[in-house]
């Protein structure tokens, strides 16, 4: 089985978000970048497919040279090879088209992407890849087993979960549950050394059209001060929620 894991390179979850150039660009100053958390769960699940079922795992990112350390980290965790498509990821549709090109050339059976990136929050790339490559698609995937050509997956639905049967080629939008938090791997020294020798191929962009464009960023309005209610006066809290906030 050939697996492609799509890796989005995102600001660490503790990052304070600021903008530059008249609020048109994300300010990367002092920001640490990591593998998108949903992708890290998917990558770890792919490692299990590699170890238990002999799968071959490639990781891919669409982005500039600055994303290479993130790909190297994925290699250190155990991926066999990495691909970077040299293009700025400005629009989900364009990213999906670049990835589709990689998939069509590489002949992958299973594509693991994240349910959502924590920076762009598009929730669109995995579904678009599935649509563009005519593969089956399971979103919000919290469990995945593959045998031969058949796959069984569980997806989260509002208020519960659902088990589905499908077949390869398959794209999933993955999240926690594919593996648990405690299963995530921190690269060790040997992994880091080996990662240096693994192939990281840079492909030129196909210059896919962008369908949307970011115009400007805004930060949420600053919050007013909290109204404190005395622990001995919970009646007041009920009254505030009813009369002032009008939420009960």
């Amino acid at each position: 089985m050939k697996i492609l894991v799509c890796i989005s390179h995102v600001p660490d979850t503790t990052s304070k978000i600021n903008f530059t150039d008249g609020d048109t660009k994300f300010d990367t100053n002092g920001v640490q970048f990591v593998i998108n958390p949903n992708d890290e769960f998917g990558l770890t699940r792919a490692m299990w497919f590699k170890e238990k079922q002999g799968a071959n795992v490639t990781v891919v990112n669409v982005g500039g040279p600055e994303t290479e350390p993130t790909l190297r980290k994925a290699l250190a965790i155990g991926a066999d090879a990495a691909i970077r498509v040299n293009a700025q990821a400005t629009d989900g549709f364009a990213v999906a088209k670049e990835l589709t090109n990689v998939i069509n050339n590489g002949g992958y059976d299973l594509v693991i992407a994240g349910r959502e990136s924590i920076d762009y929050n598009g929730g669109m790339v995995p579904g678009m890849i599935a649509g563009l490559t005519n593969a089956n698609f399971v979103n919000n995937c919290i469990n995945l087993e593959v045998e031969g050509n058949n796959a069984k997956a569980t997806r989260e639905i509002d208020g519960g979960k659902e088990t589905v049967a499908t077949s390869l080629p398959l794209v999933i939008g993955g999240q926690k549950g594919l593996v648990e938090e405690s299963d995530l791997r921190i690269p060790n020294m040997r992994g880091i050394m080996m990662a240096r020798k693994k192939p990281l191929t840079v492909l030129e962009s196909t210059n896919a059209n962008t369908e949307t464009a970011s115009v400007k960023f805004e930060k949420p309005a600053p919050k007013g001060a909290v109204k404190l209610v005395d622990a001995d006066n919970i009646d007041e809290l009920v009254s505030l929620l009813h009369n002032e906030a009008k939420v009960i």
């Binding site: 549709f93 790339v125 579904g127």
Partner: peptide, 23 residues
């Protein structure tokens, strides 16, 4: 933005060749 709509929307975007904005 229900789980089902988030699931179908990117497929629909491809089918309609539509630019898609979520959230």
């Amino acid at each position: 933005s229900s789980a089902d709509s988030k699931y179908l929307a990117p497929l629909l975007a491809v089918q309609l060749n539509a630019g898609f904005a979520s959230n």
